[in-house]
Design a protein around this nucleic acid. Structure first.
Lengths: 253, 253
DNA sequence: CGCCTATTTGATCTGATTCAAACAATGTGG
DNA sequence: CCACATTGTTTGAATCAGATCAAATAGGCG
């Protein structure tokens, strides 16, 4: 059975292919990883800060985030994760987790023992390279987030995040519309950007008033992509998207 | 000539050994890398955002930072670098640099062609693993910085950064004192933490008033390590320090 | 229908910015 | 070795972006 036949590993392979090109043999090796799939409800921790996991996971379906708890009450979301992402890839090489990972929507998650990943890497140096590059891209995203949180005013920050999430979420679907499912709450946006929920709400209203977006009932529509980009001081290079995502959206000035 | 004989690569090797253990053969291979060393004055860009370098660098002597320019005027420092660090390791796998790297003090910097690094990785899978792990640790540091910038009030942020920098800087020197050279200006602290210089100044005064630190004329003295840790909500795990740094400082409650 | 969660609104307060100017330290050339 | 320039630190005052508190409204769903 060819690797395409494994619907569990398929998003993960697609994601890695957006990082580096893979041979058929390499894809097959990934597809044959011994995985264990689970359904998880929304708003549930998958792993917790301080854990010493023996396996890593990747997301098959749904949206998650990773976060840290700061001063025992505030939460900082450090990343959102979509199908194909491996949010705790780091655990393969770092013994103790420094983040918790939680589902936002109900998710299907696949687990793989570290053992199996390490073997895979040993047998396929190009896959190691893919993982390393994946980590490098994550780091670039973190740098951009730091810049946003540290130096951009709240409304700009929000526009910037919406741009990023639009690209990352729409890369998954087949159609090229400017309307996507958007399951992230205003509270979560605030936790990701270091802004209070109230202020997120008011800033979103400003973006709506400028006719840049429509956001309602879990659906985000980009009414004016280039306007939103300008409002968010956004340029997508840091995401290192290879041409498999809506060209139009990435290229459009 | 044994690898110790190469004073240029020595800090880099020491740094990698803090990431993963290396065999004599591996260390020798690194020591034999074809490098090109340069002296660079303080406050000088080494590489710039947007560059497509064909070589990477590591720091032999001095302190640098990497930064991004946000909205064409504000600066976000995303990391500080000390001898042994490879601030643009990423360039080996990501074509376009998303950060600029600048010296803070005058520096001695060594350059290595990507070519040579890639060869090294091919021949020594364990070195690839070291680089990957290095990148993972950097990412963990970024996550901690994001949490700080996003969720901690300015005085806490500053105390936190001082703790981190103290550990990273004192890991280099031989003696285990609580007094270190500290060449970073208040303006740079502000750019790293997303705070105005004026506010950095006032927050530092608060830390002095509490008898936690003495900072003057480029020298930082930690007067009360556990107090500063508490003030900065700091725990060092995210730095993934292996026991080669002042045990006392890391362990001390 | 009633519960729960998410969004919205209003009012008030404050941490942090900005602007402007003084002061201190370091280094440079005459 | 001192005058001067430069860079970093400190102080004060005015202002503002964003937080906090509190309560109302609106959706979704068992």
């Amino acid at each position: 059975m060819p690797y395409r036949g494994n619907p569990v590993t398929q998003p993960f392979i697609k994601r890695l292919e957006s990082v580096i090109s893979l041979s058929e043999i390499e894809k097959e090796a990934i597809a044959n990883l011994p995985v264990r799939t689970t359904e998880i409800k929304g708003d549930q921790d998958i792993v917790r800060e301080g854990d010493r996991p023996t396996r890593m996971c990747f997301i098959v379906e749904g949206v998650c985030c990773s976060y840290k708890i700061v001063s025992e009450s505030k939460r900082q979301i450090v990343n959102f994760h979509v199908p194909g992402d491996a949010p705790d890839l780091q655990s393969v090489h770092l013994a103790v987790l420094d983040i918790s990972i939680a589902t936002i929507t109900p998710c299907r998650v696949a687990f793989v023992q570290h053992e199996a990943i390490l073997q895979l890497c040993e047998q396929h140096p190009n896959i190691t390279r893919a993982f390393w590059r994946h980590t490098l891209i994550d780091a670039a995203i973190y740098r951009e987030w730091m810049s946003s949180i540290g130096r951009r005013p709240a409304p700009v920050r929000i526009a910037h995040l919406l741009c990023e999430l639009f690209l990352r979420l729409s890369a998954l679907s087949l159609n090229e519309s400017f309307r996507i499912d958007f399951p992230i709450t205003q509270n979560e946006i605030g936790d990701a950007l270091g802004i209070s929920t109230v202020h997120v709400n008011r800033s979103l209203q400003a973006l709506r008033r400028k006719n840049l977006i429509a956001l309602k009932d879990g659906t985000l529509e980009i009414l004016d992509w280039s306007g939103l980009r300008r409002a968010g001081d956004f340029s997508p290079e840091y995401l290192q998207l290879r041409p498999s995502v809506p060209e139009s959206a990435v290229a459009a000035q």
